[in-house]
Each structure stands twice: as C-alpha cells, then as structure tokens.
Nucleic acid binder design. Structure first.
Length: 418
RNA sequence: CGGGGUGUCGUAUAUCGGUAGUACGCUUGCUUUGGGAGCAAGAUGGCCCAGUUCGAUUCUGGGCACCCCGACCA
C-alpha cells in the first residue's frame, strides 16, 4: 500500500481523554479512533493488525477441529428465557432494543443459547458428535464502566468456540487441546513468556475454569504465579484450600502480579443443553444431554496488550505475526528522480514476492518519516535515499532491536522469504 | 452504581466578568531536505439549556459528554 493512500494521520500528542498506553499509542499511530466511551473504530492499519490476530486464532482453532460459523448479534428473548438469562436481574450486561411492533430483542453479549438451540437441529445421534463450532462475532456488553482503551469496551469482537461432546471424558480431552491451542496463540503474538494459564472460579457454570492471564500493570486482575510450573491462580480462588489440592500449587511459592485476562475456557457441562433441549441418542438408544464447553478470546484486547507490552518510547513494536505490514519502505525526499524509481522498483519486487509493504511515498522530510515509521511499529524499515542509491544497497533497520544492515534487492527478498 | 474531576480551533494547552492567546496540524509563497525545518501571510474555537449581569467562555443551576478511583465483570 502506498502511504499517500492511507488517509490516517499520526499525532505527536495523545488525546487528553486517553490515559492507557495502548489507546494512546494506537490513536497516535492512527490505528483506531474513539467513537465514544468504550467504543472504538478500527482504521486501516488497525484493521490489518486486528485481522492478523484473527488469522492466528483461526489457524489454531482449525488445527483442533474448530469449524467457523457466524451467528447474529440480534437475539430472541425466548431463547434466553429458557436459561434464565434474559431478565435484567440475572444479567445486567444486556443492551436491549425493540422491533417496530414493540417486541423485545437483545444484542448478544455471548452466544451459548442461540448456538445450543441451533444445534438441536443438527445433532441427534452420538454419530453427530463431537462438534467444535466457533465464530468471530461482535459482542455487546453494557459495561457500567468502560476503561483502559481497547481493554474493556462495550462493543467488541470475540472469538467464541463452543464444544459439544458426548460425555465429560470426551469433553476433557478437547478442553486440554483447546488449552494447548490457546498457549500457541499467545506464543505466536509475542505474549508467550508473559501469559499464564490461570486457575479461576467457574462463575455460574462450574466450580472452576481456566483463564489465560498476561502479566501487565495496566491489567484489572491480580494473579499468583508459579513461574516454574508456568501456572497461576486468580485472586478470586487464592484463599480456597481446595484449589491447592487440585493443582498441587504451594501458596508460599507464588508471586503476585497484575494481569489482563486475554482468554478463558469454561466447562459448561449440561446446563445449556438441558435447558434448551439439546440431547442425542447413544448407542443404546437412550437420550443423553450433550456435554458442553465454551472458549473465548478477545482479539482486540489481545492487540491492546501487545501494544502495551511490546512498545517503546518511540511507539508501537509489532511482532511479525500481527504487524500490519512486514516492511515499511521509507523513501526519503530527493531531487534525483532515480530515488523514486528505485523505491517503486523495490516496492514492485517485494510485493510480487508476496511481502506486504507499506511504501512511504509522501513528500515529507526525513525526520517526520522516521518518526512515523517508529510509531507504526512495522518490523522492518527499508530506506531508499540518495545515500542508498550511491551505495547500491538499501538500509534495513529492525524496529524492535534497531539492528541495521545493508542489502541488495535480492538479498532483502532472500532474507524475507527465508 | 457510589466517590472525585474535566469540558476552550482538528490536536494539546493558556488566559480572562469587557477584542480568546500559544504550539502542532491545515492553506499560500520563498528557502530548506537522513530524525517531527525556517521565514512571511492566512483560515479555524468557548458542549447544550436556563439564570445572575449593562455585558458570561468565565459566576450559579440543570442537562449531556468524557476521564479517574472503587464496586461490578458468564
């Protein structure tokens, strides 16, 4: 993409209504725009990173047998009444609205109910199980207080996977596989070392669940970490002796840390399947409720945590896996039109080699271009200027390390496609 | 939802009961060109509704919005 086509502008200063580092950087770099409290738009660069995150998650979900679908945001109250999750007394997160005829509707804050109801049409035999269905879908939650930029918003996309298994044993096997898949997701987006599988309370579904918590001062949660076992406890179960029994963790060996919940996995059991009539016939012809689990990741929150943790004083620093572009081709101003030609040629060759390039073809001074480039956080900057023209090699600077090398086109393509 | 705070050009800020200023950005011109250039000339602003006052952006009340702390967080 030519940067002259990119309509977003960078800013020197962060808006005064944003305190969180992730929102400040993402807004300054033109990745996102704040629409209102807890509601953000994704601009071209932000969308590219966001979709990279989705793809990492998608690949890992597909590896464990996940099948993607897309459910509606608008929800029918009848379905939710069956599990007692329509009334405002039980669920305060609803955004509710009405049809012209006065009938009530809700904007989904999660999707156990509609998907379970849907599956009654698809699942009737033990031969139909297991099923692992997931989606990337907008959730709406009427949070009493949105905060911390993209960390806690009222409208957000969630990857939610729901597992439908014959029994607890089959469920547990998948639960472990999904846990491993989550670990790979966090590893791939650069949070492997700072993200801990965390034992937590099960909420209204089961006694315990697991969260994936990334250590981060901007977080809302407090966890207690066993570094050797790379396992943690949420504060909410810290004083529960049964948890130590179940996990083998020793209270005295744990260190406390602030953290952000980047994912969670829940055993739902038969709570939803029984309420919504999702059962199957086993080999003996008996009707058995389906055993369920749910598995969530918030991709935008994940992106925010990466922005928060991997950035430096000059701006964002994306890992290659989720950077909006692989290469930032920075063409410096020059009266020599060969510089421009060379940049165009490099852009063409890199693009043809399948490398995503943002080409700064604007008429701007070097300082401004470098500052913008640092702020964007694209992993590799390739400079084309009179200097590099004379040298016959391009200047290549890694954003994360500042490491600089000089490469010809073929060396550069070789390096990037290796 | 309890407590606290803030609303001034696009952004960040200053000042003031009496002509609203500065920086960045934007427009025009000249110079400059490897780390957010210089000079000159421009355009753009008081959240909304009442009240007090000769006069309100400023004071008072209400509303709305936003931020922070706490509570909440399937």
């Amino acid at each position: 993409m030519k940067q002259s086509h990119l309509f977003t502008k960078t800013r020197r200063e962060a808006p005064k209504d944003e305190v969180s580092k992730n929102a400040q950087l993402l807004i300054r770099a033109g990745y996102i725009h704040k629409e209102m409290a807890g509601v953000y738009d994704f601009l071209p660069l932000g969308l590219r990173t966001f979709e990279k995150v989705l793809n990492v998650i998608r690949e890992e979900m597909n590896k464990i047998g996940g099948v993607e679908l897309h459910l509606s945001a608008l929800q029918n109250p009848e379905t939710w009444a069956k599990t007692d999750r329509w009334s405002d007394e039980n669920v305060d997160a609803w955004f509710k609205t009405k049809l012209k005829n006065g009938a009530e509707l809700g904007l989904g804050f999660t999707h156990e109910e509609p998907l379970t109801a849907l599956m009654t049409e698809q699942i009737s035999s033990y031969k139909d199980l297991p099923v692992y269905a997931y989606q990337f879908q907008s959730k709406f939650r009427n949070e009493e207080r949105a905060k911390s930029g993209l960390m806690r918003t009222r409208e957000f996309v969630m990857k939610d996977l729901y597992s439908f298994s014959k029994d607890e044993a089959e469920h547990t096997k998948f639960y472990e596989q999904s846990s491993d898949a989550y670990g790979r997701v966090f590893e791939r987006v650069g949070l492997g070392d700072t993200t801990f599988k965390t034992f937590a309370s099960g909420g209204s579904f089961s006694k315990y669940s697991h969260e994936f918590q990334t250590v981060c001062d901007a977080g809302e949660d407090t966890i207690y970490i066993d570094d050797e076992r790379k396992l943690a406890l949420n504060k909410e179960v810290y004083d529960d002796p049964q948890v130590y029994e179940a996990t083998g963790l020793v209270k005295e060996n744990l260190r406390e840390a602030k953290s952000v919940e980047v994912g969670n996995i829940f055993t739902l059991g038969t709570r939803f399947s029984e309420a919504l009539g999702l059962s199957y016939k086993n080999e003996a012809g008996e009707s058995v409720p389906v055993f369920m689990g749910s598995y969530g990741i918030g991709p935008a929150r994940l992106m925010a945590v990466v922005a928060e943790l991997l950035s430096d004083d000059k701006g964002l620093v994306w890992p290659e896996s989720i950077a909006p572009f692989r290469v930032h081709l920075v063409e410096l101003p020059s009266d020599n039109e060969e510089v421009s030609k060379e940049a165009a040629e490099l852009y063409r060759e890199l693009t043809e080699a399948g490398i995503e390039v943002l080409w700064d073809d604007r008429e701007a001074r070097a300082g401004e271009k470098f500052a913008d480039s640092d702020l964007f956080g694209i992993p590799l900057r390739v400079v084309v200027s009179e200097k590099t023209l004379a040298a016959g090699k391009f200047e290549c600077v890694e954003r994360a390390s500042g490491h600089t090398t000089h490469k010809s086109i073929s060396e550069l393509i070789g390096h990037l496609t290796a």
